[in-house]
Every structure is written in structure tokens, then in C-alpha cells.
Design a protein around this nucleic acid. Structure first.
Length: 466
RNA sequence: GGCGCGGUAGCCAAGUGGUAAGGCAGAGGUCUGCAAAACCUUUAUUCGUGGGUUCGAUUCCCACCCGCGCCUCCA
């Protein structure tokens, strides 16, 4: 099976191929930088990262653009509260986001685009829409008239013709001809940041940001647009209306949406007390690798139920992978190459790729890797794994690592390798003298300093770890 | 109410019209001075419930129950 994705737009699984032969143009809705991102946000960003890496694996060059929303109602509200300009306020959280992304080993997109640096592009796009009769003005704000765009609702499969004023909608502070219409340009209120425009002073609506920036960098039609499921409506629906309304051409061809993360089977919320940022989890002692593994291990279209037990299981799973990797490095293997291993490695890689090709089925891909590890461990115990098999076993791990990226250990450790080797020698002498009290004391002391010793037939080996 | 996603062992989770991957946890064992690592055995007669189609359904169809999301703040 070649690469397939579930396309929200067509509501089915489709074979993927980019418009250009070997280059994929992709847009992702990035963070609104008014706070630290939480693990739910990071689930979506981890999905994008897995997608990026797998597209690379498939041989595609990538041009991936992600926006940063650095002006909106919440930012204005919270920056005032913090007594900072929105520039100062958002710079802080943008930096925090980039740090968090780096901690989780999320590859940076080729271009990250802050909304405030593209106001002119948004104004141009609104003007284009105005020329085509898709807009109207009311009390200084400019709106998109949904009735002017017949395809509206095709992404979300939602019939919005019947939207009526309800508990939430009636509180809308803007006056629109129809409730379902949305703001392209919001009139500024006194004290709010504003830009001059042909429609009067104001600021862009949220939706127009993404249309303007996506088309500026990726062209009027491009390959993939990603985001969380909650963005399907209205945000992505509105992006389509704005973009296709202006150009008359298809906007994004594939729409991929990440399901939400739940915590203890509930939606994360501050009031329930199950709201976590990456920093919260790191402070609790969990490793970034374990968090990344957990977020990546559940296929992106399935709700991910986040629990601390799950996080611990992720950590243990990574240890299993790392132990296998170390075992491959040890040497002392018989000469030759066992063809049975070659076959196992081929099967593992084939199954891994088959899983990823199937709409990024990471659970299936992981299954292929673990099955391989178990089989190879068994062969090693039986002495049937030979020196000539190391490279192909490493190829399986390399394939895994190119997507999951969790094997590298984070801390170099507080104890130097020289000191550890010295203590191992001392412990060996103690063991030879059957002074087990001393040998165990050395092992325990090192363990307390995050160094783990393991005795093998080839001698004592060590690793940094909990 | 409309539109979606899902309900598989203690937990996470894959999957298929032909009789249940994988990970974690648990139990027993091998190895070890003891550990650790690794391996072996074991843990779902069963895939939300009830019908239907079929030689055969967890997998297809229908109905129902439950969970979660969206229906203009939201990854």
C-alpha cells in the first residue's frame, strides 16, 4: 500500500501524491501565543512532526508553513492584564513554545509566520474578496457573507443555514447580517492595537490570517493542511470560503485533523484540575522522550487518553528499545550473518512502513518494531545472531528512530565515565573476593547517582538512567 | 436535535468475513552471589448490547446503550 491519508474534505482514505512531483507544500495551524501550550496542543504538534518525518522518509522535500497567532482577543485581554504591549507579551510565549517544541524534538517547519508581520497580505486578500462581492461592512467591521459562497460546509459536513441565536451566539458583540457570517476585519476599540486599512482602522479576524499566509507562501493551491479536529468548524471551513472565494481555485487538497487528547477520559480543563503543560510533566520527573512516545504512539485520528500510568508505560517501553540498541553495540558475536535475521529485519521494516503508509498508523508500526526486538533477542540468547546481522538490525532501529526520535538519552549524567569505569573495576575486585557487601554498595551508590550497572557474561556494562 | 470519532484483556492499543498484533502491569520459570538486562510459559473461548446476512462475523447490515468532540474561544 502506498501512502494514504484520511482526508477530512473527501471524508475518506485517499492515496496521497503532491501536486509537484517530489515536493510537499503543507500548512499547519500553529499556536496562539498567550500562554504555555498544553499537552493537548502538543499532541497535535507531535502529529504534525510525525507527518513531516514520514513525508521525508517517503522521499519528499517539504515546504511546511506554520502560523503563530500573535494578535487576537485573548492576547489583547491578557497582555493588558500583564501590563505589557502585545509584542512583549507574545514574544515571551512564542519563545516558550519554541523551547517546548525543541524539548519534544519537534522539527521546526521551514517557515513560521507571525500574523502581525502579514497584516498587509491579509488586507490585500480582504480587498480581493470585497471586489468579488463576498464582503460587507457593518459598524466599522468587515464580514464575509457566507451566502455568497455556495460550497460552504463541505469540509465540516455541517449545515449552517439554520444557525440561530442561542446562548452562545447572542452574546456576539458584532452586528452581522447573518449570524453565521464571520469577521474578516474587526474595528478597533479605543486602546486596542490597530492597523490602517481601506476598511478603516482595525485588526484582522483570526480566519483570514491562515488564508493569507498559506497562499502567500504555498500558492493558491497546495497539498496538505493540518490542525486539530476542533478547527474543522468554523476555522478551516472559513479558510476554504475565504481562499476559494478569492481565487476560484481549490485551496488545500488534503485536510488532516488530529483528534483530541483526553486526560483520565475527560476533556482537559483548568477547573477540573487535569490541565498539564509540558513543563508541568517535566517537573513531575517524566522525560520528554516518554511524553513524545506517548503522544506519538496512539494513531492521530484516535482520541488519546492521557494518564500517568500511560506515561510510565511509555518510559518503560523506551527503555526496552534502548536496551536492545545497547545490546547491538556490545559486540562479541560469532562471525557470519544469519539469513533468518535478514528476513526478520526485512519483515519488520516492511510492516513498519505498511503501518505508516496506512494513514500514519503508529501503533501498527510500533508493533512491528517490538516484534522484531523480541525475535532478535531470542536469537541472541540462542547464539544465532551473528556479527554480520548488526547492521541490518540497526537499520530497523534507525527507521524507527527517524520517525519516533526517542532513543537518544537526554542527560549526560553527573558521573564521569572515567569514575564509573574505576568503580566497576573496584567492584569486580570485590566480587572476585566475594565481598558482596562492598560490590553491592558500589552498585547502589551509582544507582543513587543515576548510573545503572548490569553484569553480563562479557563483563559489567553501565548506562545512565533512573 | 444535526455532524463526527470511538467502545477489543487490569491499563494503552493493532487488526481482519475464517476464527484475536504489540506495549505496560501481574504470575511462574531460566540465567545471576544477589540484582539488572534478556528469554520462556502464562493472562480475552472473546472483541458495548440485541437482532439480521453468511457455511462462518469482532470484522458486513439494522436497532439500541455508553463515552468523547464539534455545531462561531479552543490542538
Amino acid at each position: 500500500m502506498a501512502l494514504h491519508f484520511y482526508n477530512t474534505l473527501s471524508h475518506k482514505l485517499e492515496a496521497f501524491a503532491p501536486l509537484d512531483d517530489d515536493k510537499v507544500r503543507m500548512y499547519s495551524c500553529g499556536p496562539t501565543v498567550y500562554n504555555y501550550v498544553h499537552i493537548g496542543n502538543l499532541r497535535a504538534f507531535t502529529f504534525q512532526d510525525i507527518l513531516r518525518r514520514y513525508l521525508h522518509h517517503c522521499g519528499y522535500e517539504l515546504y511546511h508553513v506554520m502560523n503563530v497567532t500573535d494578535v487576537d482577543d485573548k492576547i489583547i485581554r491578557d497582555s493588558v492584564k500583564a501590563g505589557k504591549s502585545i509584542g512583549e507579551f507574545t514574544a515571551e510565549f512564542r519563545k516558550a513554545f519554541e523551547e517546548d517544541a525543541a524539548t519534544l524534538r519537534l522539527e521546526p517547519p521551514e517557515r513560521v509566520t507571525p500574523a502581525t508581520e502579514h497584516i498587509g497580505d491579509m488586507i490585500d486578500l480582504i480587498s480581493r474578496l470585497a471586489e468579488k462581492g463576498h464582503t460587507y461592512e457593518s459598524k466599522g467591521s468587515t464580514y464575509f457573507r457566507i451566502a455568497s459562497f455556495p460550497g460552504y460546509g463541505k469540509l465540516s459536513n455541517l449545515d449552517v443555514s439554520g444557525i440561530k441565536a442561542g446562548a452562545r451566539v447572542e452574546q456576539d458583540e458584532y452586528e452581522k447580517d447573518e449570524l453565521r457570517d464571520f469577521a474578516l476585519w474587526k474595528a478597533s476599540k479605543p486602546g486596542e492595537p490597530a492597523w490602517d486599512s481601506p476598511f478603516g482602522p482595525g485588526r484582522p479576524g483570526w480566519h483570514i490570517e491562515c488564508s493569507a499566509m498559506a497562499m502567500k507562501y504555498l500558492g493558491e493551491s497546495f497539498d496538505i493542511h493540518t490542525g486539530g479536529v476542533d478547527l474543522v468548524f468554523p476555522h478551516h471551513e472559513n479558510e476554504i470560503a475565504q481562499s476559494e472565494g478569492a481565487t476560484g481555485k481549490p485551496f488545500a487538497r488534503f485536510w488532516l485533523h488530529a483528534e483530541h487528547l483526553l486526560v483520565d477520559n475527560q476533556k482537559m480543563s483548568k477547573s477540573v484540575g487535569n490541565f498539564y503543560t509540558l513543563r508541568d510533566l517535566l517537573d513531575k520527573g517524566f522525560s520528554a522522550a516518554a511524553i513524545r512516545y506517548l503522544l506519538a504512539s496512539v494513531p492521530y485520528r484516535k482520541q488519546l487518553n492521557f494518564t500517568f500510568d500511560g506515561l510510565k508505560a511509555a518510559q518503560t517501553s523506551i527503555e526496552r528499545l534502548r536496551n536492545f540498541q545497547r545490546r547491538l553495540e556490545e559486540g562479541g558475536l560469532p562471525e557470519g550473518a544469519n539469513p533468518a535475521i535478514t528476513e526478520l529485519a526485512e519483515t519488520a521494516r516492511k510492516n513498519f512502513i505498511a503501518g505508516m503508509d496506512d494513514d500514519l498508523n503508529t501503533a501498527q508500526a510500533l508493533g512491528a518494531v517490538f516484534e522484531f526486538i523480541r525475535d532478535v533477542n531470542t536469537k541472541m540468547d540462542a547464539g544465532e545472531f551473528q556479527a554480520g546481522n548488526v547492521a541490518e538490525a540497526n537499520q530497523v532501529l534507525d527507521l524507527f528512530e527517524s520517525i519516533f526520535d526517542v532513543l537518544k538519552t537526554e542527560q549526560s549524567g553527573q558521573v564521569s565515565a572515567e569514575e564509573i569505569e574505576g568503580l566497576i573495576a573496584e567492584r569486580l575486585a570485590a566480587r572476585k573476593a566475594r565481598n558482596f557487601a562492598r560490590s553491592d554498595a558500589i552498585r547502589d551508590d551509582l544507582k543513587a547517582r543515576a548510573v545503572i550497572l548490569e553484569d553480563t557474561p562479557q563483563g559489567t556494562r553501565w548506562k545512565y538512567g533512573a
